[in-house]
């Protein structure tokens, strides 16, 4: 890339400078500090911290619940987006606004709200308990909280893509003999795939780092329902700063790896459509 070339957009240099500076100050610098701090332990020390069964269990719980939540959100989010774009309902505008509520709600509030709903002595919790399902204070509860906070990401990613989707494509599929399901599976969903994938990534990333809404309902039992973020706080409360940063760096690296993988996948999906000879 050469910057000497004349560009159509004005202020390219200024924009580039601002972007790099902002990214450095807001993102890279704190992360560098984090890595430096954990460096105090040395590689061997870090591995020792991370290899503790309790830490490994926390990572497993966090990633599995986040993955489950993101997958559930894809199904729910696409359905909600479908309803908001295609559905006919007098309260559509209201529902559209409510979708954003988890964005706006302080996470502690949603945590308490979910606990109040799902705790064994609460209405829904009791009903579920009678069916032999305990949600609160288990990984299922963690997943529920993550679904709650991640839903808007999928809805808001898929909604515009679905609104842009030409209705004639579905009509064409139908005129060629496709049933509603065939048209959905072979035409609509493949065309929405990039948007769905990006919603999935956002919901997944958000769930990995979620703290406030999860801790109330998780029960935080070591080895069973303790998430990584909580473990970091616990370490900090015990003044084990190096241990806390070691876990934080590992979480950071793993999240980054996941997101880069999904982005690469997304690029492949996108390329298939825009392929140019």
């Amino acid at each position: 890339m050469t910057f000497k070339q004349k560009r159509v957009l004005p202020g390219f240099g200024l924009a580039l400078g601002t972007t790099v500076t902002a990214l450095s100050l807001l993102v890279l610098l704190p992360l560098a500090a984090l890595v430096a701090r954990s460096g105090e332990l040395g590689l061997a020390g870090m591995v020792r911290v991370l290899a503790q069964p309790r830490v490994l269990a926390a990572f497993r719980v966090t990633f599995l619940t986040a993955l489950c939540a993101a997958l559930i959100n894809v199904v729910l989010g696409v359905t909600v987006a479908w309803f908001l774009v295609r559905g006919r309902c007098p309260f559509k505008r209201l529902i559209d606004a409510v979708v954003d509520l988890p964005f706006a709600l302080p996470t502690a509030v949603s945590g308490i709200a979910l606990t109040a709903l799902l705790a064994p002595d609460a209405a829904i919790g009791r009903a579920l308990g009678r069916l032999g399902l305990q949600v609160a204070f288990t990984p299922a509860g963690i997943t529920a909280a993550m679904v709650f906070i991640g839903l808007p990401f999928v809805v808001r990613s898929v909604q515009p893509a679905l609104a842009d989707l030409n209705r004639e494509l579905e009509e064409a599929a139908a005129s060629l003999g496709a049933s509603r399901w065939q048209s959905l599976l072979r035409v609509v969903l493949p065309l929405l795939a990039p948007a769905i994938l990006s919603g999935f990534t956002l919901a997944f990333a958000r769930a990995l780092g979620e703290y406030g809404s999860v801790v109330f309902i998780a029960g935080n039992m070591p080895m069973k329902s303790e998430i990584v973020s909580l473990l970091i706080i616990t370490k900090l409360e015990q003044f084990d700063y190096a241990g806390a940063t070691a876990i934080a760096v590992a979480l950071l690296a793993l999240s980054l790896l996941c997101i880069l993988t999904i982005n690469a996948l997304q690029a492949t999906v996108g390329r298939a459509e825009r392929r140019v000879s």
């Binding site: 030409n166 004639e168 009509e171 064409a172 599929a173 005129s175 049933s179 072979r186 459509e273």
Partner: peptide, 26 residues
């Protein structure tokens, strides 16, 4: 019925071959 749209309505995520084969595959 064969229906041809003004703006083609081809499936942009499929090759020309797959577009034509669509009606047979479903």
């Amino acid at each position: 019925v064969g229906f041809v749209f003004q703006h083609y309505a081809l499936f942009r995520h499929m090759t020309v071959f797959e577009n034509i084969a669509f009606g047979l595959r479903v």
